[in-house]
Write a protein that binds this DNA or RNA. Structure first.
Length: 309
DNA sequence: CGTTTTTGACCTGCGC
DNA sequence: GCGCAGGTCAAAAACG
């Protein structure tokens, strides 16, 4: 899958411009130093360091290229996932072709859910999109946040569902959203081999919010978190629940445009996505002790060289 | 030792 | 009324 043109995924380090500047400057200096043997020796040292710098720039350039390729791969995977969801959405709209439809009896509540995407991907019932959770879940933090509006006036608990990508091998069933949760139960449900975990906000009983987390039966790499209720206390700790921490845990989230059955991203969301990816890469690099050590060594080495000349 | 997680038992609501 | 399935409780275990 090609990256769309609106996404400039190259990491512009301006190394090419620097590289081009060297040949222009060098000859001028060489003319001057040719009159003095000492200056000539000095210049030869500088020339060596210039070639070193060129090598360094070449190395950085190739690294830049690799990073660009990595970023392209990330985009590729993202769009594949998006396409997959789009397919599921279209299946939902044509129930006669819904291969996931459960022939057996279901509870009324579940039947509502089965009207839409299979395996709890969405709900035929519409839910309120203005719940507190939705405000707390920054678009950056959510892979897919399917918002729904409550039509049932008796349902005072606002419900929202969030889809989060997760590592398949990770069986913890935890969705980092900044809040602290206490697990109070786990159950294996009939239509999904993976267990469903039940969480209460750790501020309970003063905070009534509950959360259910279960792997999607369709795609085990996706965790489906269902939030019920509204937090009646201050929001999550920024250091815990902000976009950076989510990025760090390899969770990339986006809002899904639900009303028009379209998965097309709004322009600002694309920019957000781009920012998130750049942050992710920067975060990965700064967390890599080898990289930072090498960078520090290179910088200090260069400073030492300059101080000597 | 206090807090959190696990897990089997129990409760509740729905369909037949 | 019965059986099934989801949701909750609470004692025990695990953890820091």
């Amino acid at each position: 899958m090609d990256c769309p043109s609106f996404l400039d995924i190259s990491l512009n380090l301006n190394t090419n411009n620097l590289d081009r500047s060297f040949p222009e400057k060098l000859p001028k200096k060489e003319l001057k130093v040719s009159t003095s043997a000492d200056l000539k020796r000095k210049w030869m040292v500088k020339d060596e360091s210039a070639s070193e710098l060129r090598e360094e720039l070449n190395r950085v350039n190739s690294e830049n290229k690799k990073l660009t390729e990595m970023l392209a791969t990330v985009y590729e995977k993202y769009y594949a996932l998006q396409h997959h969801l789009e397919k599921l959405q279209s299946r939902r709209q044509s129930p006669e072709t819904d291969q996931f439809e459960q022939p057996t009896k279901r509870r009324k509540q579940d039947s509502d859910e089965s009207l839409s995407l299979p395996n709890g991907f969405s709900s035929g019932k519409t839910y309120n999109s203005s719940s507190n959770e939705d405000h707390h879940h920054d678009p950056k933090n959510q892979l897919l946040s399917c918002k729904r509006a409550v039509t049932d006036s008796f349902d005072k608990a606002k419900i929202s569902t969030v889809y989060v990508s997760a590592v398949c091998s990770d069986t913890s069933l935890t969705v980092k959203d900044g809040y602290q949760w206490r697990k109070y139960g786990q159950k294996v449900t009939r239509d999904n081999p993976s267990p469903r975990a039940y969480f209460r906000c750790s501020f309970a009983p003063s905070c009534p919010v509950k959360k259910k987390v279960q792997r999607s039966a369709e795609d085990p790499s996706i965790l489906v978190a269902t939030y019920e209720g509204t937090h009646n206390h201050l929001g999550p700790n920024a250091s815990e629940g902000d976009a950076t921490s989510q990025v760090g845990s390899r969770t990339v989230t986006l809002e899904m445009v639900h009303g028009g059955h379209s998965l097309a991203l709004e322009k600002n969301e694309r920019e957000t996505m781009q920012e998130v990816l750049v942050q992710q890469m920067a975060s990965s690099l700064t967390k890599d002790s080898k990289f930072t050590a090498a960078l520090a060594a290179a910088i200090s080495g260069r400073l030492m060289e300059q101080s000597r000349t």
